[in-house]
Design a binder for these strands. Sequence first.
DNA 1: TCTGGGGTCCTAGGACCC
DNA 2: TCTGGGGTCCTAGGACCC
Length: 424
Amino acid sequence: MACYALVDCNNFYASCERAFRPELNGRPVVVLSNNDGCIIARSGEAKALGIDMGTPYFKCRALLERHGVAVFSSNYALYGDMSARVMRILTRFCPAVEVYSIDEAFCDLSGVPGGAEAYGRRLRATVLAWTGIPVSVGIARTKTLAKLANRFAKKQDRSRGVFDLTTSPDPDRVLRWTDIGDVWGIGPRHAKRLRAMGVTNALQFRELDRDWVKKKMTVSGLHTLLELRGLPCHDFASGPADKKTIVSSRSFGHPVTRLDHMLEATAQYTTRAAEKLRKQQSVASAILVYLQTNSFRLGQPQYANTLSVPLAVATNHTPTLIRAAQTAMERIFKPGYQYKKCGVMLSGLEPEHGRWLNLLALPPDHRPGDAPLMRAVDRVNHRWGRDTVAFAASGITRDWRMKRDMRSPRYTTVWEEILQVRAK
DNA sequence: TCTGGGGTCCTAGGACCC
DNA sequence: TCTGGGGTCCTAGGACCC
């Protein structure tokens, strides 16, 4: 019988910041989204102050200052590297690991020696000792139940970070304790509707009629129901699946009004998206661009538009993609507006090798030298850091760039920012 | 002044074909 | 003038996830 452990890092981004600043232990810490927009991670102390996830920074700034909260801009170079370290440890000690997100992984603990719970405790202690990141471990027969067990492990002090639902004397009590809105797969819309019917916890949901659930919540809802009953519906995936779409978009540091700035940003985001595309060895057959004004500014004139253009031949050649994206952007850009954000999306992704070729158009990356050039650019940027080699179309000063006024050093990925230790 | 970014899956409905 | 059923493909929108 399958036995899954969900290993989830506690307050991951806040914990990453703390791992290098031990003086912050016991102090409230929050991390902001891109552009220092809203709160996306909180230490336990920050949660206790009543700071909600997703709160705009400017709305809670005074409260944060009053309580001496340490505030950080997000530092994805640091979080990505810390995540890789955690995942390497899990991979080393577990027979099979599915990395589910930057801070979570499902581990197959079927048949581990000494029992799953003891194994989970050793995993937890090892990750903490080797990375400084505290994790919680929830163990169960299905992924949905493992999620639920993990939450219980996090919230109930007496489980000390690990909870095994498969050996629990009263698993139904844990389901009754779990609010309907905290069940994996049940979002705010369905939760509201279920509550209105008197279904307020996971146990009550589990007892609902399956046909009713399928009709009202599609097969996704049915899978959630069956998983709560112990029937696995979500398979264990060992490798990451290839993406079907790739998006790159950002809000600007301040409003953009000029077409040339918009075209620079378009080129920059296209460059990012193309890098991701080549990393999974795919080519894109269409590119979509969009732009929008700030919809929170009700008094200002609003405009948003998108344009999707098919590519004659699927490609991952950055200059070709930039040309297509900029041409599309020129067509939807209208002067006289204060733009807040733009983005590009690559779709119709296919494997790079063994794809169909259009008989009427020469594949752009079949020009001799194009593919090797892209490979060389990727290698240089991987070795020496992002944008060591960049495309001129992305601009030099990049006035539109996002704000990150409080970013911590990239301790683990940039030599100049490495942690310094001084002897007294 | 200041409100994130990147994804997946499912379903309904329209266009089009035989 | 009216009448049919079955199928595919694509898109938009909704809901969810981290």
